[in-house]
Design a protein around this nucleic acid. Structure first.
Lengths: 201, 201
DNA sequence: GCCCCTTGTTAGTGGTCGTTAACACTGTTG
DNA sequence: CAACAGTGTTAACGACCACTAACAAGGGGC
């Protein structure tokens, strides 16, 4: 499998992955049949096996892919390093929000279907997730030195829950213009982190 | 079954529901077979049908039950009404945290498996959820009059995501003594709400 | 002792679903 | 043209699974 090919249009694989993500998010991994996934891209059923080893392989590629993209994006922003740790934290939050808003289904699948993976894939995803969390934790602790590591880690997880709630909250609702949603989410996340640092209950 | 049938300290139904919730949270509704649920309570397979009409009925009862308990608890705290709206908001947050920490599996199932319900049950759960959200929204707007209704509603959803992240973040990890976790989550939620009200990005 | 309700059991059934097998069409390459 | 790699089709298989059927054991009420 040489990866040298660069199809101008979206490859079949990508098309399938996108639809599979949507369907998995809507009805769960076990709730979607291969026939449905095939139908969603205009082919039917077993034709998928020309592109993937099986249903599990699609889920694995989705979850590993998103975890890698999140981590890479995070590392980039940290490396770019603004003028201050605070700026980096802002960038991390903005990046994560963009991700959550752009790839709604992926975010949903990401934290729901992890346990449906084969052991080896699950370990890989868990490792990537852990690294991504640690990335955030370091930045948070730099911005709020009063925060213990355990607190920072819990806060990061909680803020992920906060940011990832977007797909869940906007079934088809009237969420205001995207920039407003982005700004609100960013404010919420920053407010939460600031409160994590403060010692008063 | 030689156990001296303790007079319904916990009924069989409750026992089944508890185990079903745990299993559904671990492996998803479709990922769990009725035989497993039966085995978890010491009977096997189709014996469950003496207590429930079917697998769907168990999920429905779980989701409707938790939604009702959340709403009832919320209403109680609002009715109790502390000395200020702020106190009520604190009580709502504490109540929700207790719930999330006490009924980890239920919280998980609650926002993952809603779509596996029959239309009528799904509508009921959605309605209960909506009422619960509106309860919070009213209190939040009272505490932070600067907040628009749309902002308040989005913030409430986001804070739910934050608070409900606990089950997800503590697989078996070292989360510090429970009271510390409670306090941290409360601080995070309050910080987020406060930030939602503030206009600066 | 008899009835019957409750709560179990095991065996079987029908349907769904992931996967494989066998075959067909297409375009490129030599 | 022939060979072939790539991509699709339909048919069938085997496993799993929710659910039903038929039957059994315990235990009050009369």
């Amino acid at each position: 499998m040489s990866s040298t090919k660069a199809p101008a249009t979206v490859s079949r694989r990508e098309q399938i992955l996108k639809e599979a993500a949507r369907l998995f998010a809507e009805r769960g991994f076990h709730g979607v049949g291969v026939d449905e996934i095939g139908a969603a891209v205009g082919i039917s059923g077993p034709g998928l096996y020309r592109h993937f080893a099986g249903k599990d392989a699609m889920l694995a590629e989705l979850l590993v892919g998103i975890s890698e993209r999140l981590l890479d994006g995070g590392r980039l922003r940290v490396a770019d390093g603004g003028e201050s740790a605070e700026e980096v934290l802002h960038a991390l939050i903005e990046g994560h929000i963009d991700f959550a808003l752009d790839d709604r289904p992926l975010i949903t699948v990401h934290d729901r279907e992890l346990d449906r993976l084969r052991e080896v894939d699950r370990k890989r995803v868990r490792q990537l997730q852990r690294q991504y969390v640690e990335l955030w934790v370091e930045v948070v602790r730099e911005v709020y030195p009063a925060c213990t590591e355990a607190e920072a880690r819990a806060a990061v997880h909680a803020v992920f829950g906060l940011l990832n709630s977007t797909p869940h909250l906007s079934p088809r609702a009237s969420l205001p213009p995207r920039t407003a949603t982005e700004a609100l989410l960013k404010r919420l996340a920053l407010g939460a982190f600031a409160a994590a640092a403060g010692r008063e209950g």
